[in-house]
């Protein structure tokens, strides 16, 4: 009897978390999967079962989808390595005995504290044609005025810069913590064996940072498909979908064009991509990583 009451208490305590998780994570995922096989209900016409029609349309009849997937692929391919590389560099720098180390660390971390929308708005000013900071610098060197966010060639790259700037500081914190967990005696031992600082970094520090790199990599890649606040704030995916990312396209399809069935199918694709990335990374890299 006592045990059963205890079990009831246990379930009651877990209930709020379970309800929230089920209502906002698990059920929507399952519902999206189901909805992706049904047409969008309109007015008096209820949803009809259409099978894989939405998926066929994606691959055959939707050039915007292909463009958006390509954009997102390029976006991840550039921002993830750049942000991680920059994070590592900054962490190595602020791990050294430099002057005003605390201030430099704070400065590197500041972008992380800002909401993405705020960061995007700051950069909106930097990119403004005519009197924006970047164009003022360009004109000081006698270079022509550029509409960074308004031109097909530069819009996506301009969005990438904001992402790298925003993410690098966050990842730096992880690298910094990992670097400080490496006993300094290892560098001394390496030095005595004739290793320069660079050799030490390459052969000792970087391999020991691999678990951190995997963690950061998974997070960065997921972030690359998951965060589109800055696209909304800066370019609205334009011009001509040049800077649209997958999640932004799903948002537009669902809430602007109200094509919920097709949006569900797109969401399923996004979930598959994210799941695939995580599994592949853990499988591929896990074997080659040294965990302490």
């Amino acid at each position: 009897m006592d045990r059963r009451i205890q079990a009831v208490y246990g379930w009651l305590l877990a209930l709020p978390a379970c309800v929230l998780l089920a209502a906002f994570t698990h059920w929507p995922a399952v519902a999206s999967l189901i909805d992706s096989f049904w047409s969008t209900p309109r007015g008096r016409r209820p949803a009809q079962f259409v099978g894989f029609e939405h998926y066929r349309r994606m691959l055959a009849d939707d050039p915007i989808f292909l463009q958006v997937v390509w954009n997102n692929f390029l976006y991840a391919l550039v921002t993830v390595p750049a942000a991680i590389g920059l994070a590592l560099l900054m962490a190595l720098l602020v791990n050294e005995r430099i002057r005003a180390r605390g201030l430099v660390r704070l400065a590197y971390f500041t972008p992380t504290v800002l909401p993405m929308v705020a960061a995007a708005n700051i950069w909106l000013f930097f990119y403004t044609p005519g009197y924006g900071l970047l164009n003022q610098i360009l004109s000081a060197f006698g270079l022509p005025d550029t509409n960074f966010l308004g031109s097909r060639d530069t819009a996506l790259w301009s969005v990438m810069v904001v992402t790298i700037w925003k993410e690098a500081g966050f990842f730096m914190i992880f690298y910094l913590a990992a670097l400080q967990a490496i006993p300094p005696v290892l560098e001394e031992a390496a030095r005595l064996e004739g290793a320069s600082h660079l050799v030490y970094l390459r052969r000792v520090a970087l391999p020991l940072l691999m678990p951190t790199t995997l963690f950061v990599l998974v997070n960065a890649l997921i972030g690359a498909f998951r965060v589109v606040d800055h696209v909304v704030a800066m370019t609205q995916g334009g011009p001509d979908n040049a800077s649209a990312l997958l999640l932004f396209y799903i948002y537009e399809t669902a809430f602007r064009f109200w094509d919920t069935g097709y949006a569900s199918a797109l969401t399923v694709v996004l979930l598959l991509v994210l799941g695939g990335i995580s599994i592949a990374q853990v499988r591929l890299l896990d074997r080659r990583i040294h965990y302490r």
């Binding site: 290892l186 001394e188 031992a189 390496a190 064996e193 290793a195 052969r203 000792v204 020991l208 302490r292």
Partner: peptide, 28 residues
């Protein structure tokens, strides 16, 4: 031109015994 043994041994945790021993030779 000296070698040193540390109190904590300072072995490189990601390298096997052979690579730990020959680390300095490889570097040189």
């Amino acid at each position: 031109g000296l070698a040193m043994v540390f109190q904590s041994y300072a072995l490189f945790p990601h390298l096997d015994v052979a690579r730990n021993i020959t680390f300095g030779l490889e570097v040189r």
